[in-house]
């Protein structure tokens, strides 16, 4: 991308999409109820509280209890959205989420923010790096990782109409807006091919999608045509798109800001190894805890960059 184009780039945190979508949902659907666990300002659900105070419930610092209450509300016909940090929504509250919400296939949507290493300075205790793994393992749980604010907003809005629980992974730090708000449509289980190429497929989620696009541009300069797929939905996986691309390029790099154990790379590998085996490399966090730092510092330190994607892609293409 040229310096000029980079200057014109706009940035939003995906969590902003959550707050905005909730406001629209609140106006559209009287059954929508929002819960938070003392993080409404951070998750941005505070706006919903302001406009729909009778349908907003702050459960205090009690994530397990919040999931239990949400299950009861959903069992009584409400469409629930629960906010917290990804660490606590999926870690602390894993068991109520699994045993009450998911087992009952209840309409409780988990939209925690502050996922991944980019939480930054708060450090390891607040950096959920295992949340995709945990949520993906639960039968019936849908897992969505929006790449930008526009995608996040549309995913949250869509979740209100999807039967059963949906996990939407949101981030704290502002990231580039890569989608066109005018034309963007979210569809659960549908990936988007953002750039076509014949040499290698890069399957990315969340903020790594922008890094993948940057990597593809750098690769093109060296004569390597990378196909960039914004996976969007980790579960259910868009098998058609992944399969088609892997068949075409024969090489796949996955990219996520999450542990490599059980995350997006695993999901893609599980599918391809059984259906279209091909050389595959993964960019992500290699079974480590995070630490304090600025989001950019941390992304570099843990190798979650366009540069890392490019290197892995090049290695695959040249081997």
């Amino acid at each position: 991308m040229s310096k000029e184009a980079e200057k014109q780039m706009t940035y939003h945190a995906t969590r902003q999409g959550y707050g905005e979508a909730l406001l629209e949902l609140g106006a559209e659907n009287p059954n929508v109820v929002v819960l938070d666990a003392d993080l409404a300002k951070s998750t941005t659900s505070i706006a919903f509280k302001k406009h729909f105070p009778k349908r907003f419930f702050d459960c205090g610092i009690a994530e397990q209890g919040m999931m239990g209450v949400a299950a009861g509300l959903a069992a009584s016909g409400k469409v629930c959205f629960t906010g917290s940090f990804a660490m606590f929504a999926t870690g602390r509250a894993f068991e109520p989420v699994r045993n009450t919400i998911a087992y009952g296939n209840l309409n409780v949507n988990l939209c925690p923010t502050h996922a991944g290493i980019t939480v930054g300075a708060d450090g390891s205790s607040h950096q959920a790096l295992e949340d995709i793994t945990l949520m993906r393992a639960i039968p019936g749980m849908k897992v969505v990782v929006p790449a930008d604010y526009i995608e996040a907003k549309r995913a949250v809005k869509a979740a209100a109409k999807i039967k059963g629980p949906v996990y939407i992974r949101l981030g704290r730090a502002p990231t580039p807006d890569i989608n066109d708000a005018e034309t963007y449509k979210f569809e659960l289980g549908k990936a988007r091919v953002l750039r076509e190429g014949r040499d290698v497929s890069i399957v990315a989620v969340g903020l790594m999608v922008y890094e993948a696009l940057q990597a593809a541009e750098a690769l093109a300069k060296e004569g390597i045509e990378a196909e960039v797929i914004n996976l969007i939905t980790v579960k259910p996986l868009d098998k058609d798109t992944v399969l088609k691309s892997a068949k075409k390029t024969g090489r796949v790099v996955t990219a996520e800001w999450h542990t490599l154990i059980g995350g997006v790379g695993s999901a893609v590998s599980e599918f391809l190894s059984q259906n279209q085996p091909c050389p595959l490399a993964m960019v992500g966090i290699e079974g480590r805890f995070g630490q304090s730092g600025s989001p950019d510092e941390l992304l570099k330190h843990y190798g979650l960059t366009a540069k890392a994607i490019k290197q892995k892609a090049k290695k695959l293409v040249s081997s």
Binding site: Q64, M66, G68, V69, G72, L73
Partner: peptide, 10 residues
């Protein structure tokens, strides 16, 4: 118990 509370809240 929290689920029952959620039902009561509904």
């Amino acid at each position: 118990l929290p689920a029952a509370a959620g039902m009561a809240l509904a």
